[in-house]
Simulated assay, not measured.
Amino acid sequence: MKTPDLSEPRTRRRVIAALTAAVIVLVLSGMGVYGLLAGPPNPDRDDDGGRPEPSITTPSGPVPTTTPRLPVVRASDDPETFARNVATALFEWDTASGFMPLDYTSVVLDVGDPTGTEQAGLASDIAAYLPSRDAWLELRQYATAQHISIDNAYIPDSWATAVEQAQPGQLAEGTVAVTIEGTRHRTGLWNDEQVTSEHAVAFTVFVVCGPTYETCHLLRLSQLDNPLR
């Protein structure tokens, strides 16, 4: 006669006990998670078991009412005024606005040569004035913003020589170069403190106005800090 293995029932009991304990732990854990989701019992709960009306808490701090906007190049039929408007929009950007360099590029391109002849070159010119995408993301960590204060705007003496040397039909009527001199201002946060920097800048804006067009349009930009004098 085979001797019964008494260890099997004992093993089964251990397995059943372990499974039972696991189920209890899961149930208690589930109750704990439910408690975190539902929150503590509400003392204001209706006596009839109904749920109370939800309460709304108004933030104590001011709520922003303005939405970040891209700059705009204001139209003008005066070359100097228009060049100033271009310069203002070109240097006005904010990395914390949610916009990217291409968004600011499109602002200036919108007032470019209507024929499209200079658009590719102009896009390249503008890109040289703005931070690259990687630099933009780096500057965004410091909430960096920029603007320009214009000190002087004038038609450089060398432009008259350029017009004289141009071939017939090479320059559309009303094409003018305007040199801008000013100061680039940057602000940002460093260790939660406001920091600023200033840098003198100079560049030339090439525009075309009347009689070719009723309002001025942007043709090209010189290299930054390499203007016509």
Rank of each mutant, 00 (worst) to 15 (best):
K2G: 12
K2N: 15
K2P: 14
T3P: 09
T3D: 15
P4G: 00
D5L: 09
D5S: 06
E8V: 14
P9V: 04
R10D: 13
R12F: 11
R12M: 12
R14C: 08
R14H: 07
I16G: 06
L19K: 05
L19M: 06
T20H: 11
A22W: 10
V25W: 02
V27H: 11
V27R: 09
S29V: 12
G30E: 05
M31P: 13
G32M: 11
V33K: 09
L37I: 08
L37H: 03
P41M: 06
P41C: 05
P41S: 07
D46G: 13
D46I: 12
D47T: 13
D48S: 10
P54L: 02
S55I: 12
P59H: 03
S60N: 12
G61T: 15
G61F: 13
P62L: 07
P62K: 04
T65F: 15
T65A: 13
T66C: 12
R69Q: 12
R69T: 12
L70P: 07
P71Y: 02
P71V: 00
V72A: 10
V73R: 05
R74W: 12
R74Q: 15
S76K: 01
S76C: 01
S76V: 01
S76Q: 01
D78C: 08
P79A: 05
E80K: 10
E80S: 09
F82Q: 02
R84I: 10
N85K: 02
V86W: 04
A89Q: 04
F91R: 02
W93D: 03
A96T: 08
G98V: 01
F99Y: 09
T105S: 14
L109A: 09
L109W: 08
D110M: 11
G112W: 05
D113P: 06
P114R: 03
T115R: 01
L122S: 00
S124F: 10
D125K: 04
A127G: 08
A127Q: 10
A128S: 10
A128F: 07
D134Y: 15
D134K: 12
W136H: 00
W136F: 01
E138V: 13
L139V: 05
L139K: 06
Q141D: 11
Y142T: 15
A143M: 11
T144R: 09
A145E: 14
A145Q: 15
A145F: 11
H147R: 15
I150R: 03
A153Q: 04
Y154N: 01
Y154E: 08
P156E: 02
D157Y: 09
S158G: 08
A160E: 12
E164R: 13
Q165G: 14
A166E: 06
G169Q: 03
E173T: 13
E173Q: 15
G174I: 06
G174F: 04
V176S: 06
A177I: 05
T179K: 01
I180G: 00
R186T: 10
T187L: 08
L189P: 07
E193T: 15
E193L: 14
T196N: 15
E198Y: 14
E198D: 14
E198C: 08
A200M: 10
V201F: 04
F203Y: 06
F206V: 10
V207A: 05
C209S: 00
G210F: 09
T212Y: 03
Y213V: 03
Y213G: 01
T215V: 15
L218C: 03
R220T: 02
L221I: 02
L224G: 00
L228P: 07
L228T: 07
